[in-house]
Design a protein around this nucleic acid. Sequence first.
DNA 1: AGGTATTCACATGAAACTATTCTCTGAGTTAGG
DNA 2: TAACTCAGAGAATAGTTTCATGTGAATACCTGT
Length: 407
Amino acid sequence: MGLGNFFENYLKQDSLFVDKSILSSSYMPSEIVYRETQVNAVANILAPALRLERPSNLFVYGKTGTGKTLSLKYVLKSMEEIAKKNDIKLKTIYLNCKLKRVADTEYRLIAQLTKEFGREIPSTGLPTDEVYNIFYGVLDQQKQLVLLVLDEIDQLTKKIGDEILYNLTRINSELKQSQIALVGISNSLIFAESLDPRVKSSLSQEELVFPAYNALQIQDILRRRANHAFREGSVETGVIEKCSAYAAREHGDVRRAIDLLRVAGELADRTNAKSITISHLDEAEQKVESDRMVSAITDQPKQYQAVLYSILLVAPEKKHFFTGEIYDCYQTICKKSGLNILTQRRISDILAELDMQGIIHAKIISKGRYGRTREITINLDQALTLKLRDVAEQSLHLTDNGNKQTI
DNA sequence: AGGTATTCACATGAAACTATTCTCTGAGTTAGG
DNA sequence: TAACTCAGAGAATAGTTTCATGTGAATACCTGT
């Protein structure tokens, strides 16, 4: 009665999925629908690169899940293929600036870029301008054209300012043989406004906005993917419709819709169902929502978790509560878990940030004679609250062991 | 009754402090010539 | 000898505290009727 049997069964069991990777976020479809105009525009702008002429720098905006990254990667891929076939010295680099420890400081970004050209740079020990010099060196070794795509560029400038972008846009004048063109991708529509005007004008020589998909488009995209990902007839009618309606409501984010569909499929699979039903979808929606909250909590720093935990403790008792109550609760929690207690001033800021992140709702009200404070609410059902409380508890008690501070 | 003053319970700002992370320099090490 | 590596010093940064000031309306306190 070993595990062998279980695995045997597992293998024999026919899954609803034919190819699950089609529903993963890194999947590259063979054609991109509803983004033809954008893809063409990008291709048009970047095409001169194939003649080794420097294309204009490009700036791409659009909310999450509107196909920016996918379209850009698609264009890059086909350009690379052409370049390879015709022996054109074209180098494309795609970098996601959000990746921690890879491209989130100036030094690391340049080091990473240099690495793309096959030259390692020590992770520390060199002055930044030295790193720049090395980078210029490898870049200029041969005549080539470089397309540099910086995804989530807003994250980069948020962290380290726009100086680095200024440097990058100026690289061309330093180079003798090579040329470099920049493509910036940003989720935030107002991002460019916050840039230094010089950077802005040189970076956004061309701009392109990716609008959100509407419900019908999401539906079609989902259907195309589902057709290839699942066995025929394993998705009941109405599921795709509901799934896309849900995503359209949440600002047209296709990625979320695809995720949702995949989770629904997994749930159906697990219960050996013959097809995916609406109820699987509902269940998936709950699970996704719950997972989102769970990771929202676990991704927070410890102090934030402590604050959230206090909120979760107080939450079931009343509909809304105030900063002071949370702070009292927070203090006892800190004592229990060995965390050092931050001042109320800081907690006030933390609460404001949690509000920004959409994890809690807080609005400032005046209770007249009885002061002025944040009125905090969270709308979670009982089960989820308890679960989240558990999660936070786990996460906080872990600090108990590993915490070196003694009080 | 109507008007103004007070007061609460924090919010919000600015400056100062601190611990951590980055950047840089120079010494030491290695490898190639 | 040039190139590389590394440790440690100093600079930059993020997170936090301290001090100071601001806020909106319920309530307390007047004031003249």
